[in-house]
């Protein structure tokens, strides 16, 4: 069943500082949408607004999960995750003193996810064999690439219908970035997810995105209806890639 996400006229920030200014965007059922922008333009703030970690001053955020619509503004983070919206945050936010397996099992805390725990764990270990090898290692002692895989796998353990990923490429070597982006595509197809991915790495993100938005100073500066439209846009060349 279809799961999608729509933001309408979102205004949000921190205290008196306004970061997002009238942002509207949507992620259709089964789509992978890229949220593109350089540092400090509001990508994480937008993700946090969806997840109830930043409270918008105005606007609505509607998540449709398997055909049922829910207004997200005003809900707590744990409620939003419980509805079926998974989030891989900036900085991964693993539990460093717990093992890989313990981190993954915590991912399945959500009651709906508990029945599928064995199946999802198998799937995660199949997709990331490295995690299986390291299943008893403490999360905090792993490399950046392994931690990113664990963060992705942990979010999948909650059996989400919509997945938000904040800058999966940060801190990874170029080859690993490519592999991580490929894995996201693989997971998206395997779980039939709807994905919103924030990225600075334009080239890599556009490889797997169906569409994309470019955010500049908290406003949507450009909407690309296809990967080609993003690739061939002069505005992006000028503002975003600096070319």
């Amino acid at each position: 069943m279809a799961s999608s996400l729509t933001l309408s006229n979102i205004v949000a920030g921190y205290g008196a500082v306004r970061v997002l200014d009238d942002v509207s965007l949507s992620v259709g059922a089964g789509e992978t949408v890229a949220l593109l922008g350089t540092n400090g333009n509001g990508k994480s703030t937008l993700m946090k607004s969806i997840m109830g970690m930043v409270r918008p001053a105005a606007g609505t955020i509607t998540a449709t999960i398997d055909g049922t619509s829910h207004e997200l503004v005003g809900r707590s983070t744990e409620e939003i995750v419980d509805l079926g919206v998974g989030f891989v945050p900036e900085g991964r936010r693993l539990f460093p003193k717990l093992t890989v397996t313990e981190n993954l099992l915590l991912g399945a805390f959500r009651p709906t996810a508990r029945s599928a725990i064995a199946k999802n764990l198998d799937f995660c270990f199949e997709t990331f064999p490295r995690l299986k090898e390291r299943s008893n290692q403490l999360a905090g002692s792993m490399s950046g690439g392994e931690q990113q895989m664990l963060a992705l796998a942990r979010a999948l353990m909650s059996a989400p219908r919509i997945l938000l990923i904040d800058e999966p490429s940060v801190g990874l070597a170029p080859l690993l970035v490519q592999r991580t982006i490929d894995k996201i595509k693989e997971l998206k197809d395997g779980f039939n997810l709807t994905v919103l991915m924030a990225e600075q790495n334009f080239t890599q993100a556009v490889r797997i995105a169906d569409r994309g938005y470019v955010i500049v100073h908290g406003k949507i500066a450009f909407t690309g209806e296809s990967a080609e439209a993003l690739n061939n846009n002069d505005l992006i060349r000028e503002f975003y890639l600096g070319a």
């Binding site: 970690m53 707590s76 983070t77 744990e78 945050p89 539990f95 460093p96």
Partner: peptide, 23 residues
């Protein structure tokens, strides 16, 4: 148990625990 694992995790990162759907 799920609650038990959450107890072990809660002091490490409360915000991350919310992302596991736990209060």
């Amino acid at each position: 148990t799920f609650i038990g694992r959450a107890i072990q995790a809660v002091a490490q990162d409360q915000q991350a625990l919310r992302l596991m759907a736990a209060d």
